[in-house]
Design a protein around this nucleic acid. Structure first.
Lengths: 209, 209, 209, 209
DNA sequence: GATGAATGAGCTTTCATTCAT
DNA sequence: CATGAATGAAAGCTCATTCAT
């Protein structure tokens, strides 16, 4: 951030800008997010926007941080050993559903469309590390089989859960109770497996060419 | 396609352009895919590109069609009842890994970043329908529990598998044998579950605000 | 107009752009009028041009409006019954000469070369109606023969006067006193005729083929 | 022309190309006339077109020559002293109407839109001279007043007639008998005037600004 | 602090023209 | 002679960013 807001008025301005950015991102995607659009949606001039955000990437960086915090909170709950296992898994699934219900498109755009600029790397890397650690904690707390040294189990869980939730958000079935049940089933089934599947003899299936 | 290639040399050109588009899409994403970049990567002039592809969208449309064909082929194998169940599941997982090993990031960008133009709707809608049907067939052929009238099980399977594979491609762990094992585990575990999980009493977990 | 100028400096910019457009149109015709040329001639950047004019057509639309206003003013004078007939006819001829002396070729290009965009239709249609009405008023006020229900007399007067003036502008003889005399003669002679000419028996003259 | 057609087949090709150019010019204007469009309309490849016409301008040059011939023929008739005066004037008006009835838009585009390239100057200049001489002959043969040393009378006649005819073509009233009558009236009235009009004392009419 | 006018690199796309086949 | 694939300069237009007011 180029300049720290010192007055309450300025703080309100930066909040308005960040909220407007999240809104525009959700409505129009990264393609349709232009600095002028955001400034207009926030009700400030483009000049004011640039007084607090040095460039376009810094804008979504602020949005990203908010989303990151939300996700980490959910993951923390999902590895909280003071709760029974089912409650933890439910917290994971329900938390993800809740987060993606708010600005479904914005969240999706944030993770999939928006480029990650050089100068915003640190923040992102920090979160990525936290995210990974949290997912590993979730895996460790809930899986019924041996450790996951490579982190592959955690990453699979993260990818599968995110993928299923995003797909559901796309189809508009995210708030269906059946979907919630199936998500719970999938997460629980994967984590509950004591042994991994035996790989059948190499099948000669392959993609074209 | 604006003009059909009639000479061998023109066919080579269109192929080179489509491959270059897939490559650039994978390397730089939709943002970084410019028509000039693609032309340069294909080793042809921008004019040649526009002789066969009416616009930027048509470019990725061609890439999309290729990926779609690949995926449908895999899904067809995965619901082929002449093979034993393990072989089918292995075909699904291995096929997906193979497809995403080629231009890992390209496939992800294709589905998540690229806008879908008016005129490319038909192709995409056709595929979306086929895709859904195929996944439903896969679910029906391999799940050990009752039917999936709403299609939610199939969509969850599709989303979870794609999400996990994409995440692995991002982390570069897609060709790890452990990853393949875990994918098999996840898919098999989800499909093998006879009953769905009981939802614990409403937990009061929620995202901020 | 895409954006209304709010500061004095912006108003000067839009004026400069419109004048430059008229100038370039006169010098190079519609073919040679490029947005960059106009911006350069106006001494502003291409971006500034597009801040006030949404596209190339809007540019000449602004020029057109100015010319239209000028012409309507002249026509109004030419049907002002408080002046004697000679004065009215002189007003018509002198007014047309004055208008076409400013950007001689621009006016011609405006009416003959420039395409008329969808969104500029309304303005043009409005003017076309006014123009027709005004010419009919001029004809009614100055012709020495019966009414012109079909409007053909008025349209002939309009076409002939414009044609002669444009041709003179092209040859550079528009400011010659003889030209003014001849224009007065032509207009007066046509309007003064009490009866129309008898058509001789069908001559068998024809163009080739 | 780059290469002279030596075989009958090649002559047919050049004719087809020129006719196609005239047709496209009439249908789509100079803007819409592209070399590929013309080649396609003529049913030949773009390569063949360029074998006979060195560039785009040479294409319309050929069309222009045809139109020029038509016009000169009409003007020649209009100054043919073996016919009575009314017949000559009728020949002028009827001939002009006939020419402009054929490809009205093409003719208009030819004279007003198409740029005159450096290398096509000679042909055009030759015609312009002939055209002027012919109009002067028409004026001399039909005007009832003293000579027109400056050529201004002839040029006014040319401009006024062309302007009125073009305006009529635009309005679609070119084939109306009333229009023919009015054209005859206008031409005859102008040429019949023995003395020019007296200019009233300078009126203070002026265009805006 | 706030404004919005001004900037210009860079994008997508067209089309006159060349040349290998 | 005929073909059409290939070329690339140049056009219209966008939008992140700066800076005078």
């Amino acid at each position: 951030m180029r300049k720290l807001p010192r007055q309450a008025r300025a703080l309100a301005t930066t909040d308005a800008i960040r909220d407007a950015a999240a809104h525009v991102l959700g409505e129009r995607g990264w393609q349709g997010l232009t600095t002028n659009t955001v400034a207009e949606a926030a009700g400030v001039s483009i000049g004011s926007l640039y007084q607090y955000f040095p460039n376009k990437l810094a804008l979504i960086e602020a949005v990203r941080r908010r989303h990151f915090d939300d996700i980490l909170l959910v993951l923390r709950n999902a590895s909280d050993k003071t709760m029974p296992r089912e409650r933890r898994i439910a917290a994971l699934v329900e938390g993800m559903i809740a987060i993606h219900s708010r600005y479904p498109a914005a969240h999706h755009a944030l993770l999939n469309e928006c480029p990650r600029g050089e100068d915003s790397r640190r923040t992102h890397d920090f979160f990525a590390k936290e995210w990974r650690k949290s997912y590993e904690a979730v895996f460790a707390a809930n899986a019924r089989r041996a450790g996951d040294q490579s982190g592959i189990g955690a990453s699979l869980l993260a990818g599968a859960l995110a993928g299923a939730v995003h797909e559901a958000a796309r189809r508009g079935t995210l708030d269906s109770p059946v979907m919630k049940q199936e998500l719970l089933t999938m997460v629980d089934a994967y984590l509950a497996r004591r042994q991994t599947v035996e790989l059948p003899e190499p099948a000669t299936t392959q993609a074209r060419r």
